[in-house]
Design a protein around this nucleic acid. Structure first.
Length: 294
DNA sequence: CCCCAGGCAGTTA
DNA sequence: TAACTGCCTGGG
């Protein structure tokens, strides 16, 4: 698979890109820092960079970037070297439900996100709703993140550094609307400052050991751990079971109340090394169509 | 207004 | 180790 890339001034275009639908990528719930603009493009922040993404016909236009940055950051971030056709085929064989879910979320790509931001964001996501998670992450960034400049006349801020958060008190953090998760985030930040995350090391561990090490963080349980495994460590057989996935799996496969752990083990067996992708298609499908909700 | 949200930690049996 | 409970906060 060879990408057809054009590098312009402050802009990179990938021609005839397969399996890339901005709306599905940014609104499938994997990331909390991308917002839709009036023209249908999305502006977001990652790795202390501001980027705008727009799809025109079959081309993807990446604005506010350049060749060097694109190759160093965004290629991997957008998982552009992965052929989603193979994944889709693998997880949907003999599974009409998964075929439907994939058809619905056809252009989803899994973003390779930063470890600390992913950990903190998904700690915040617990017992919370997506609009509020996004708002909290935004306020956190405005209050404690680096100022990155303006884009489309709006001030943009990076997600706060782990050291900054580690130095705060829960009382200070609570002004960001983070609620009782403030103490979780701070404790976890302090753990990470004391022992920085070694991504390479984590990637080499088998998923069980990797999960176990993540569960040591405060505010990280099985669901959040699997989100971290999948969205930033690259353990693609992870399978986060949240309320939506639980409901949709019960509705389609189990036909009865089933414990998250049972669902997760079932999915790992059923979908194998691409289980995480299956989870993301299912989650998006279920949430958008309200499947399984009473 | 009340209900609840992409769970988790802490506490009991 | 399984089951139960309370939880900041604000969107819907």
């Amino acid at each position: 698979m060879q990408l057809d890339i054009i590098y312009n001034h402050n802009e990179v275009i990938v021609k005839n890109m397969e399996d890339f639908e901005p709306q599905h990528i940014f609104e499938c719930g994997q990331s909390f820092r991308w917002n839709r603009e009036i023209d249908g493009s999305y502006t977001g922040i990652a790795y202390k960079k501001i980027l705008n993404v727009k799809k025109i016909d079959r081309d993807i236009i990446f604005k506010n970037t350049n060749k060097k940055e694109f190759n160093e950051i965004w290629m991997e971030y957008f998982d552009l070297n992965t052929d989603y056709k193979i994944i889709k085929k693998e997880i949907s064989k003999d599974d009409p439900i998964m075929k439907k879910a994939i058809d619905f979320g056809n252009g989803i790509r899994i973003l390779k996100q930063e470890p600390w931001e992913t950990i903190a964001s998904f700690i915040i996501s617990a017992n919370n709703n997506i609009p509020r998670i996004k708002k909290t992450v935004e306020i956190l960034s405005e209050n404690y993140g680096d100022y990155l400049g303006q884009y489309n006349d709006i001030d943009r801020y990076a997600f706060p550094d782990v050291k900054t958060i580690a130095g705060l008190t829960p009382e200070e953090l609570k002004s960001s609307g983070i609620g009782y998760r403030a103490s979780y985030i701070i404790k976890t930040a302090q753990m990470i400052v004391d022992e920085p995350i070694d991504l390479c090391k984590l990637q080499k561990l088998d998923i069980k050991k990797c999960e176990k090490s993540l569960l040591q963080y405060h505010g990280v349980g099985p669901k959040v751990a699997h989100c971290i495994l999948f969205f930033c460590i690259g353990q693609m057989e992870a399978f986060p079971v949240d309320t939506w996935v639980k409901r949709v799996m019960e509705y389609f496969y189990f036909k009865e109340e089933t414990k998250p752990k049972v669902i997760q083990e079932f999915a790992t067996k059923k979908y194998g090394k691409y289980a995480g992708y299956a989870q993301q298609y299912l989650f998006y499908y279920a949430r958008e169509l309200n499947i399984g909700k009473k």
